[in-house]
Amino acid sequence: MKNTKGEKIFYFFNYIFLALLGVTTLFPFLNVLAKSLSSEKAVISGKVSVYPIGLQFGTYKYVFTNDQFLNSLKVSIFITVVGTLVALAITVFTAYPLSKPHLKGRKTILLMYIFIMLFSGGLVPHYLLMREFHLLNTVWSLIIPAMVSVYNMLIIKNFFESVPESLEEAARIDGTSNFGVLFRILLPIAKPVLATIGLFYAVTYWNAFFEAMMYVSKPELKPLQLYLYELIKQSQKPILDVDAALNLNSESLQSATIIASTAPILVVYPFLQKYFVKGIIVGSVKG
């Protein structure tokens, strides 16, 4: 059907408006990028908007030779890779049995999971628990608490439930065991869901800083996001200590650190994004 003249005009302006709206969301990001590449003089006199002025790469050189940054990067990569793998494994092992209606006590177990999804013991008990397990100031204190996300577990469980029972029955007639069914039948079909949940976990682990703030006091165990958070917070605080004032980092350097620590996860996104929507819908909508 043809659009009327009025509609055409409406669409024209609508698209322009939406495009502008899209561009505005990019602005802050471009601004930080430009600042990271500009000279400090240009940055403090407020001349930098979306393109660099007084182009320099010294800030990036500094960031990538800074021991603290590299150390934190290592910690973050370790947590993200190991954490995601462990979390995926545990989540699948939890979700699979719970997707079977004949499992005894299934409802009770599920209720317990949902209960902890809504209510939490609070920070102090968590801290004491970590302490009693001797996990404080270890890298595992950053991995273990986030290992099973109930939400993610439910998505995978729903997916398993949506797989026709006959598929599994066929496999069992051929003599496949429980593990066999899981690893050879279900998981290959579940790839989109696993990719999505894996990305969820990866993003959670990559962005986590609160656990580190509470459970870790060793500077060499700080993940990247905490390093970044503290770097920025420190410079925004009113200056009380003269010696702190003497060591303030420049804004270009902060911006370079922000870019350098956002880039890795940004690179992973596009490759997994296509699974995103598909993965969630496949899991939740049942035909």
Binding site: L123, V124, Y127, L128, R131, N137, M213, M214, S217, K218, P219, L226, Y229, E230, K233, Q234, K237
Partner: peptide, 20 residues
């Protein structure tokens, strides 16, 4: 061996450490 408090919520963290 040196340890550090966080930049934010330092006093809360310190209380936690002490009560633990």
């Amino acid at each position: 061996e040196y340890f550090m408090l966080p930049a934010e919520n330092a006093i809360e963290k310190l209380s936690l450490e002490i009560s633990g």
